[in-house]
Design a protein around this nucleic acid. Structure first.
Lengths: 314, 314
DNA sequence: ACGCATCGTTTCCTTCGGGAAACAATAATG
DNA sequence: CATTATTGTTTCCCGAAGGAAACGATGCGT
């Protein structure tokens, strides 16, 4: 068929019993309807409408043609309703990338989300790699960085800010004896830096004083869980995010070191693409994480320690 | 929806797994498909296709949208098939206008037509008025005129030519005595002319001689059946079409007058509108009448006299 | 690693379809 | 009976959309 719009024009003229009335209803010029329906009759080789001024009648073949046209138009309306529903009710699959450190918190907030949106499937990729959303077809990435990387193709949603604190196992601290801010650089340390042999911690105390501590870490790794495990094992002093520290310390696996000193903020945030037509499912998960994660991080002591860390401690 | 053609474009791209393949299949530029589908996604507010160069995937909502679109397109195809079928198999209603004089012949040929095309309903309007096809919504008019009126909006299909002959009742002829071509003008006559007090018959003999007979008819009426009845009743000499004469004479109700003389031809013909999109039903009836009527008129003596004429003769 | 073919998208120019206006026909009204 | 309002169709002009060409991206073959 030359132009599918013709069936809509024809159906409108039939329904409104005239070109002028149909033109007013559709808000198009009547010449458009006149020409299109004439062309449709030409193409089909049958007369759909018998008409003169002031009289219009659908022919027999026209009526049968109209019946199928109206079914087609009903299908189109249903198709449009599908699109509208897709915008309103979250459904489908959402892919989330998050660092290992956040896995327990994500595990904590997801059941509520899934109960609230049963039609949404969430696929979570847990790793400490920097995820390329577009290339890896991720919808959302959860990150915790001292600074937010500006990327004009991505949208950032800040969640919360967490300070990082010094911690070590009680056994190590008993072995090392008293530690001061000035002697810290001589102690065995653990670092997030996996590229250089030395690292610098910029620490701030409650009085606002700043102290740069240049140290040579025993282990350098960008995986918090590796560092966390090494600290628990007594390999050295680590600078860990607030929420991780408090959870581990509650069960006595780590103890605070120089508790009046802490490091620069780590900003937890979500990143997602700017592509238009974002599905409600993606939007809903973003909203849920933005609401729930900060609360969980603020009372992270309530979060159960992962079983493997328990086993490591025994 | 802005443009219903978009659903056809989208369905084609999905079916062919790519814009370029779909463009080749539909024989349209791929830029058209690209722009239309982008506009459709904008209008619906959802992404129907995930795509990059060399990769195309229908999204979940796109698949559900596509399912309904394909149903719509199937209905459009069915609607088109209805139109095609209407062109091939004659069906529906045809309206035919014919003069009273032809009613018996029409009655003779119609049973065969109805048996051959059971889905066609023929509505026959019998009258001697000049029928305006368009105004009166007639499909076909049967006419017998000395000359065919040229009307550029109508199509004419000649059927046959019938000469008109002089006839009178035997009783009248016995009363009048011998009649010659020269004395004809003094005799009581009957005329088709209903407007003027006098009339002229232009008669031709077998030798090719022409004679204009100016006469003052006893009765002037444009209805052949009225004239036929008046002739049978002995009111005067009438100039009647060949096929009517032979039928009436066969049963002795009328006798020929000056049989070597006859009048100009009466051309039996069909007229119908030039409007395109003529239905097969109308076409079929035209063909049937054009084939059968001349045969019937050629052997009109086989046609039964109408019952009321029998009664009038008794 | 490089060149090539083909992809989907975007740009830009030309053409044709949209739409305002005019026309002829017809019914309603004074 | 004349006038008016409204109908569906046709005309004509201009701008929006079609479509050729260009562009950047990507997979394949050498």
């Amino acid at each position: 068929m030359r132009d599918l719009n013709d069936i809509a024009y024809f159906a409108a003229v039939a329904r409104h019993q005239g070109f002028s009335a149909a033109a007013r209803a559709l808000n198009v010029p009547k010449s458009l309807l006149s020409k299109h329906i004439a062309a449709l009759e030409q193409e089909l080789g049958v007369r759909l409408l018998e008409r003169s001024t002031r009289m219009l009648r659908v022919t027999e073949v026209g009526q049968r043609f109209l019946d199928h046209c109206e079914q087609a138009l009903a299908n189109v309306e249903t198709a449009q309703a599908v699109a509208v529903a897709a915008q309103l009710e979250p459904q489908g699959t959402v892919r989330l990338a998050c660092p290992l450190g956040f896995a327990p918190m994500i595990a904590h907030v997801m059941p509520d989300f899934s109960r609230r949106y049963p039609k949404v499937q969430v696929l979570i990729s847990v790793s400490n790699r920097r995820v390329d959303l577009v290339a890896e077809q991720m919808d959302i990435a959860l990150r915790a960085r001292p600074e937010i990387e500006m990327d004009e193709t991505l949208v950032v949603r800040r969640l919360s800010v967490a300070r990082r604190r010094l911690a070590a196992s009680p056994q190590l601290l008993e072995r090392l004896g008293a530690i001061t801010i000035d002697s810290l650089h001589k102690q065995p340390t653990l670092s997030m830096n996996s590229e250089h042999g030395t690292d610098r911690w910029t620490l701030v105390n409650e009085a606002g004083d700043t102290k740069d501590v240049d140290h040579r870490p025993v282990i350098g790794c960008d995986d918090f869980t590796v560092l966390e495990r090494a600290a628990i094992e007594g390999l050295g002093i680590a600078l860990l995010p607030d929420h991780m520290c408090q959870r581990i310390m509650r069960v006595g696996l780590l103890a605070p070191v120089l508790p009046t000193w802490s490091a620069a903020e780590a900003i937890a945030h979500l990143v997602f693409t700017t592509r238009q037509g974002m599905l409600p499912a993606v939007r809903s998960l973003i909203d849920h994480l933005a609401t729930q994660l900060p609360r969980v991080m603020a009372r992270c002591s309530e979060v159960e320690v992962a079983p493997r860390l328990h086993e490591a401690a025994e």
